[in-house]
């Protein structure tokens, strides 16, 4: 299904603008993630698409050419996975999964066969007749997905579906969910505050901040070409290099870096993995702390620029705290972004 959102905004009673006018187009079978910190409007946007919130006047929501802006949630034929899962405790796993089909008044035999189909796909065979309260968090999450998918919705909406799980399980279920969504081949919108989750699951990610979409694109585009300082910070934890810019030169406390182009009035950011310890490097810094993390060392650097800076260092050994080191940063790794959008 193709989803077209035009001029979607939400002002709460009292005047708080949860969502500024937003346009978004999602093509058939695409998985889009709405990524942002809490309060950025991502859940509000999802709930408006679901029909659980009413947008401000002037909005238009179109599912495959059909205007559903004024349809209620129960007639929109959407599937939704809630943060709390919202499974019905008074029904078994099978009862939960079959509920949407029962609402469609399908014949009993068809309900049974379709429920069995989804149960098999989500590997819930062993739990089909259990009560919801007897399931683990991961199993509940799969039941919630199966329940949303069984009625074959036009679009699947997921609201932080992994956030109720503990960290170890979350990583495993993230990959599983990505795989299942692709098997279903469904158009899906996925709300999360976790960049790893968004990147692992989505075809395209819309980064949201303060009620607006700051940038939308594939994970690679967002990572390599962030449009704003906010996106660079949120996706891949870019750190600002505060200093004085003169044409294509960045004057830092620890030396001068060459920029790929004149950047007066801009902001320069860098990611930890792009800062290299290099005896021939043009800038210097003092090692403050060194944390060994198995695959790499995380080194806190002082004296290079204002604010905290970290370098990600691989290798068999690392400099000691208190040592002075020389650093190099490839000029193409520097992110030069307009200032003032750092929100």
């Amino acid at each position: 299904m193709t989803l077209t959102l035009t001029n979607i905004a939400k002002t709460f009673p009292g005047g708080t603008k949860a969502l500024l006018p937003t346009d978004l187009e999602i093509s058939k079978g695409e998985i889009v993630s709405l990524l942002g910190p809490s309060g950025c409007g991502k859940s509000t946007l999802l709930r408006i698409i679901a029909g659980l919130e009413t947008p401000d006047a002037g909005a238009k929501i179109v599912f495959d050419g059909e205007d559903v802006t004024h349809q209620s949630v129960e007639t929109r034929k959407i599937g939704m996975v809630f943060q709390s899962y919202a499974l019905f405790p008074n029904m078994s796993v099978r009862g939960n999964i079959g509920y949407g089909l029962k609402m469609q008044r399908l014949p009993r035999a068809e309900i049974d066969s379709r429920v069995n189909e989804v149960i098999a796909l989500c590997r819930l065979d062993a739990y089909a007749d259990r009560s919801i309260t007897a399931l683990s968090g991961g199993q509940r999450q799969r039941v919630a997905l199966a329940r949303a998918m069984a009625p074959r919705p036009r679009v699947l909406l997921l609201d932080e579906p992994l956030s109720a799980l503990d960290a170890a399980l979350r990583g495993q279920l993230r990959d599983e969910l990505a795989l299942l969504l692709r098997q279903f081949g469904i158009t899906a919108i996925f709300v999360t505050h976790d960049q790893d989750e968004a990147m692992a699951i989505a075809d395209r990610v819309a980064v949201m901040s303060q009620g607006e979409v700051a940038q939308i694109g594939t994970p690679e585009v967002l990572y390599r070409n962030p449009a704003t300082g906010f996106v660079a910070r949120f996706v891949g934890d870019a750190m600002p290099l505060e200093g004085r810019i003169e044409a294509d030169r960045l004057h830092l406390r620890g030396g001068v870096l060459a920029l790929p182009k004149p950047a007066d009035g801009s902001e320069v950011l860098v990611r930890a993995e792009d800062i290299r310890i290099d005896p021939e490097g043009p800038v210097s810094a003092r090692v403050e702390t060194v944390t060994f993390l198995g695959t790499h060392y995380r080194i806190a650097l002082g004296g290079l620029a204002e604010g905290p800076l970290f370098a990600l260092h691989t290798g068999l050994s690392a400099p000691k705290p208190g040592e002075d080191v020389r650093l190099s940063i490839a000029s193409e790794a520097l992110l030069i972004l307009p200032r003032g959008l750092a929100a």
Binding site: A86, F88, Y99, G100, R147
Partner: peptide, 29 residues
């Protein structure tokens, strides 16, 4: 004591109108 709002939203997203939600979800729980 139960998360009534979410349960009802869940039922609504599956196509249940207000009366069905009351008798299928609210009353049994």
């Amino acid at each position: 004591a139960i998360d009534l709002k979410s349960l009802e939203e869940g039922a609504a997203s599956l196509g249940a109108g207000p009366a069905r939600r009351f008798f299928d979800i609210v009353v049994p729980n």
